[in-house]
């Protein structure tokens, strides 16, 4: 079947007086790794839980794989979810955790065993089937949760903050692992995250949410280079936001600005004084005060090893080209 795997039409949801999701329209194509990105309380988790069927929309409808999900309980949806807490059954061993969903489907015992073994191999947990969740490390638990969701061969896999419970080192590796699995299995992933780096690094497309609404949808590149609003520009990466006219701004990424002792040959230039330098090894971040006006953030790669290029207090020139910035109206 062609067409989008997920179609969300004007979905809204309130909890008491709090509007968690305030009218969302969204389409997700087959084979995408789609990220819902936003701060806490932006409605991304509620939206995900509505896809899984744990919450019912107050209005609007959700169509998954051409089927209207209105009134369809979670256990009948062609969707599986990996929980943030993993939600592994503590009284069952790993094999039974992974096989749980197949057993409910009434799959034959031998087939269950085969599919469970395959799923465990896929997440590199071969031979750990007899362990209890309590006997596993955090990373192993995460992979059991993944295997448990994948073994059902869902049309859509939902991931709720899949990396949040892992420590930093493990997170890096797992990120690539998840992308590899998604591509290898040709599945559609929808993940929720508050971490913009995670979303940028993994997603093929993402939606930035704020106050229950989607502010911008696009590829990571689109969203980074062409933020639609001041909020997005600020939330995704770092941007200098300059007011150019009443209700008109320009978002300028720090790395798109040239810093030099003399006036650079760019379309736009300004002089200022370095008030602060943060040395980060590969690059340095400079805070440059423009006259009595704004303080701008500028990033320069440290391509030379020996010499420090600029010092605090130096008077410098900043320059940027015509297409370096993104004009904003809001």
């Amino acid at each position: 079947m062609s067409g989008p795997i997920v179609k969300i039409d004007g979905v809204a949801k309130s909890f008491g007086a709090v509007q968690a999701v305030a009218g969302v329209d969204l389409e997700i194509a087959r084979g995408e790794l789609f990220a819902l990105l936003g701060g806490s309380g932006c409605g991304k988790t509620t939206l995900l839980r509505m896809l899984a069927g744990f919450e019912t929309p107050d209005s609007g409808r959700i169509v998954i794989d051409g089927q209207d999900m209105t009134g369809v309980p979670p256990h009948l949806r062609p969707v599986n979810m990996m929980f943030q807490s993993y939600a592994l059954f503590p009284h069952l061993d790993v094999a039974n955790n992974v096989g749980y969903g197949l057993k409910r489907e009434g799959v034959a015992k031998t087939e269950i065993a085969e599919r469970v073994a395959a799923a465990l191999a896929l997440v590199k947990l071969d031979g750990l089937g007899a362990r209890r969740p309590a006997q596993l490390s955090g990373g192993q638990r995460q992979r059991v949760a993944l295997a448990r969701a994948l073994v059902k061969r869902p049309k859509l896999l939902l991931l709720d903050e899949p990396l949040a419970a892992l420590d930093r080192k493990l997170r890096e590796g797992t990120r690539f692992e998840l992308v590899r699995l998604q591509e290898q299995l040709e599945l559609t992933f929808v993940m929720v995250t508050h971490d913009q780096e995670e979303a940028m690094g993994m997603a093929s497309r993402l939606a930035v949410m704020k106050d229950g609404r989607i502010v911008q949808t696009g590829t990571p590149h689109d969203v980074y280079e062409r933020p639609a609003t001041r909020f997005v520009a600020d939330f995704i990466g770092v941007a200098n936001i300059l007011q150019t006219a009443p209700r008109r701004w320009l978002a300028l990424r720090p790395e798109k600005i040239v810093l030099a002792a003399n006036r650079p040959a760019t379309a736009h230039a300004a002089t200022g004084k370095i008030v602060d330098i943060a040395y980060e090894g590969d690059r340095s971040l400079y805070r440059v005060a423009i006259g009595n006006g704004p303080v701008m953030l500028v990033a320069q790669m440290n391509t030379e090893r020996v010499r420090e290029s600029h010092r605090r207090g130096d008077a410098v020139w900043l320059g940027w080209s015509d297409d370096a910035g993104q004009p904003l109206e809001e």
């Binding site: 256990h75 009948l76 599986n80 979810m81 929980f83 807490s85 939600a87 749980y100 969903g101 409910r104």
Partner: peptide
């Protein structure tokens, strides 16, 4: 969330 997981995995 264990019950949600069960329901998500197809348990009535």
């Amino acid at each position: 969330s264990l019950l949600e997981a069960a329901s998500d995995l197809g348990a009535r």
